[in-house]
Amino acid sequence: MTTTTIAGHQVEVNDEGFLTSPQEWSEDLAPELARLIGLELTEEHWKLIRFLREDYASQGETATLRRVSTQTGTPVKSLFALFPGKPAKKMAYVSGLPKPKGCV
């Protein structure tokens, strides 16, 4: 594990840059995490980030793309538009959560 500073906060990250402790995440970290992967957060992004955080707290694991789509009513196509390329991985990263199971 590596300690790094993001948005003025010292956090532990793994070799891919994901926070190793979701408790270290805060809403002021999210815009900087998003910027690091080329995103600018909109209210639609925040809706998904907040869902992921709440779902993780209750389920104990990061929601899959399918679960995010089903539970939030957001079409998978929209998830790809909001988080281009690898939406599940990018949503988890910005939300300060581990990659979903099965995510490469």
Rank of each mutant, 00 (worst) to 15 (best):
H9W: 02
E24G: 02
Y93E: 05
D15A: 02
T64N: 04
E24Y: 03
L65S: 08
G38T: 06
S78P: 00
Q23G: 11
L48N: 08
G102P: 01
I37D: 07
G8S: 11
P100T: 06
F18D: 05
H9I: 04
F80G: 00
Q71I: 02
A92V: 11
K77P: 01
T5L: 00
G17E: 05
H9K: 15
N14L: 07
A30K: 09
P22Y: 13
F18P: 03
E61A: 06
K99I: 12
Q10K: 11
A7G: 02
Y93G: 06
K90Q: 14
V94Q: 07
G96D: 13
S95I: 03
P75K: 14
K99G: 11
A81M: 07
S58F: 12
V76I: 15
P84T: 12
P87L: 12
T72Y: 03
Y93F: 15
Q59D: 06
E44Q: 13
V13H: 00
L97D: 13
S58V: 14
T70N: 07
G17T: 05
I37N: 10
L33Y: 02
P31S: 11
T42A: 00
A81E: 14
E61K: 15
G85R: 11
S69K: 03
W25E: 11
T2E: 13
W25D: 10
H9G: 03
L39G: 04
R50F: 08
F18L: 04
E12Y: 01
T70E: 13
K77T: 14
F80P: 00
M91R: 07
T20M: 15
G38M: 09
T74D: 11
K86S: 14
V104G: 15
Y56V: 10
P22A: 09
T4L: 05
Q10W: 01
Q23T: 15
A30D: 01
Q23W: 08
A34T: 04
K99S: 14
L19G: 03
H45C: 05
L41Q: 07
S95T: 08
L48H: 05
S26C: 11
E32W: 06
L48Y: 03
L82D: 12
T5S: 07
E40L: 01
V68S: 06
Y93S: 08
V104E: 14
W25F: 12
N14Y: 05
A92Y: 13
L82Q: 10
G96P: 07
K90W: 02
V68H: 03
G73Y: 08
I37R: 14
N14K: 03
